[in-house]
Structures are given as C-alpha cells and as structure tokens.
Design a protein around this nucleic acid. Sequence first.
DNA 1: TGTTATTTGTTATATTATTACACACTGTTA
DNA 2: TAACAGTGTGTAATAATATAACAAATAACA
Lengths: 130, 130
Amino acid sequence: MQKQQYLTKNQQIVLDLVEKSTQPLKAYSILFNVQKKGLKAPLQVYRALDKLVEIGKIHKIESRNAFVACKNSSCQVSKATAFSICEVCEKITEISSSSLSKYLTDFKDKDGMKYSKYNLEFFGLCKKCR
Amino acid sequence: MQKQQYLTKNQQIVLDLVEKSTQPLKAYSILFNVQKKGLKAPLQVYRALDKLVEIGKIHKIESRNAFVACKNSSCQVSKATAFSICEVCEKITEISSSSLSKYLTDFKDKDGMKYSKYNLEFFGLCKKCR
DNA sequence: TGTTATTTGTTATATTATTACACACTGTTA
DNA sequence: TAACAGTGTGTAATAATATAACAAATAACA
Ligand SMILES: [Zn+2]
Ligand SMILES: [Zn+2]
Ligand SMILES: [Zn+2]
Ligand SMILES: [Zn+2]
C-alpha cells in the first residue's frame, strides 16, 4: 500500500491543469496557465512537476519535454512507463499492458542485470493520421 | 542494404568525437571540443548531430540530452533503440538483444497498432555501483 | 550548363531548466 | 517551551539546451 500523498497548493494547481489537459503540456505552457493562480516563476512550476513525477501522478515524455497525467494507477509504484507517440499530430497515449510491463521488468541484459525502472516511447502514426 | 552515407566535414568531426568518447556527450560539450576544428556555433553542432542521429550513426539519450555513438550496426535501419543507464555513475550501455527488439517491434497496443520506431531507457545500478 | 537540394556560416533568439538565498510552515523531540 | 530537521515557498538571476532566419557556398545531376 502506497503512503497517502497530500499535495501542496502549488502541486495541486499544476496537477489539476495537467489532468484536465487532453494533450501533453510543456513546463512554460503550464507556467503561463497558472500565473493567474499565483505561480509566477518557472521554479515554482518545476518544483511541483518534480514532485508530481516522483510520486507518479504525472509522467515526463522525455522526447518531447512535456508532461502528462498518469492514466494508470500502478505507475505510482513502478516508475515503469510506456507511451505511444504519433509523429504527425503528437497525440500521446500511455500504454497499459501487463504483458509488456512484465516482459520489461523481467528483462535481463547480457550481464544478467535486471531493471525495475524504465521508460519506453513508441513512435508511429495514430489511427487518425494513417 | 543501406545506402552508403558520405559524411560532410562537420558531420565527420562530430562523429569522430562522439565515437572516441567513452561516455555520452552533451551538445555544448561537443561544441567546446570542436571549436578548434572550426565549428564555432551551436547550430553547426546541432545540424551535424541531427544528421548523424537520422542516419543512425549516433543516438540521443533523451532522458539525459546526451549523445552516444551506435554500437550496433542494425540501428542504422531500425531506429529502434534500447539503453541501460546507471543512475549513480551515469554509465550508459546500448542494449543489443534480438529478443528484446523482436518483442518490441512485434508489440501491438490495445488498438492493434504496431510501431517500428521506439526508444527504451532502463534505469538502475551498474555492476560497479551496486 | 542550369537547376535543385544540401550544407555552411553567422547572428540573434527561443526554450528548457537550475542555482542561490532568505524565509515560512510542519512535525519531532529535548 | 525552544531547538531542530525536513519540506515547501518566493524571488531574482543565470545556466543549459535548442531553433529561427537569412545569405552564401557547395554538391548532385540532368
Ligand atoms: Zn502512468
Ligand atoms: Zn496522429
Ligand atoms: Zn545503435
Ligand atoms: Zn554505475
């Protein structure tokens, strides 16, 4: 069982924005959108984002420098994430496949090493953009 | 069979540097190191890097904004990459596992969609840092 | 040759992210 | 209570990463 996380005001403001967005948000776009709520400086946004990523409420799409809300409660524990990214419309979907996560969590490299943390980004065309 | 790529002078300079490095290099570190060879501006480096990534000679480690030479000739075709990253010493190894690449290339998401391009980054501790 | 595409050099600027420091709030414990 | 540790806040400044815009040079090729 995960320890209950009480979010601070700034963290909640940022999370609310990211959660209600239908697409990934960039840090400075978040900043622009929360300035009316009192978060005036980049650092206030980055600190909230760091914490939200750490506790698994949001994920960073590394290849896009953008953030999405987690759609998959298990990510709070695992920090094992997978996404599909449409290279045309930039639609991003979090992949929630237990067989994929099992395969990757069990994967051993040629030194026999296992890794519990990973980030996987698939690229292609979404249904609409085919 | 892949078309032979003739590199331009700038591309070759950047590739040489990245290939002889034992660790991933950041763009501005590359810039600093090639200034004596005449590449004075960030764009000259970024353009060479873009091209080298495009043809598969190097890869970008997205979570680190750093570049490594490809150790795996098949990447020139596939753009399907996997790395292990030590979170302590930042040692990065390109994973070359045909079973992994087969699994990921064959993977279908819940809409039945397949992706030929992906980037996977595993995180953990390397042998030395355990 | 003319034509096209690619690459280059250069300056300026945009975007993404962190350092540093003073202060405030919370809960623990001496 | 007071001292302390841990975390979060606000602010300014700056670092690090990356791209836009434009003119000129070079390569590819019919
Ligand atoms: Zn998730
Ligand atoms: Zn699309
Ligand atoms: Zn490779
Ligand atoms: Zn290590």
